[in-house]
């Protein structure tokens, strides 16, 4: 019981602090020139990593499973310029169907 609340309290406080540090210390001002050109590439770098890990990550292992079908269908939909809503729905349905059939 007390262990539970200790974890809830520490994780909560730590996460709130991590999220707040940039906006509270640097908020409302443009970033310095050098930092700005690095931060510009943060979105593609992290999104690339998130796509890879969400597709192939399975805890501390890599796995090729039904999600690959979903993401492949999403890639085709994106290429065909489908709206994001449709992309997400198609990926979900394709993954569920593959999981039910395979």
């Amino acid at each position: 019981m007390s262990q539970t609340w200790l974890v809830v309290g520490l994780v909560g406080a730590g996460t709130i602090a991590i999220k707040a540090i940039g906006p509270v210390l640097l908020g409302g001002r443009p970033l310095p020139e050098g930092l700005a050109s690095v931060i510009e590439l943060l979105a593609p770098a992290l999104l690339g990593a998130l796509v890879a890990v969400q597709t192939f990550g399975n805890g501390q292992a890599l796995a090729v499973d039904e999600r690959v079908f979903g993401v492949a269908v999403a890639a085709i939909a994106i290429w065909r310029k489908a709206p994001l809503l449709l992309v997400v729905i198609l990926a979900t349905v394709a993954t569920a169907v593959a999981r039910a059939l395979l």
Partner: peptide, 19 residues
């Protein structure tokens, strides 16, 4: 079961490509 675990990868890919 509902394939919702693929929703996040699809969203992130959809946001990454135009970038």
């Amino acid at each position: 079961t509902f394939g919702l675990d693929a929703a996040f990868a699809a969203l992130f890919l959809g946001l990454l490509v135009p970038m």
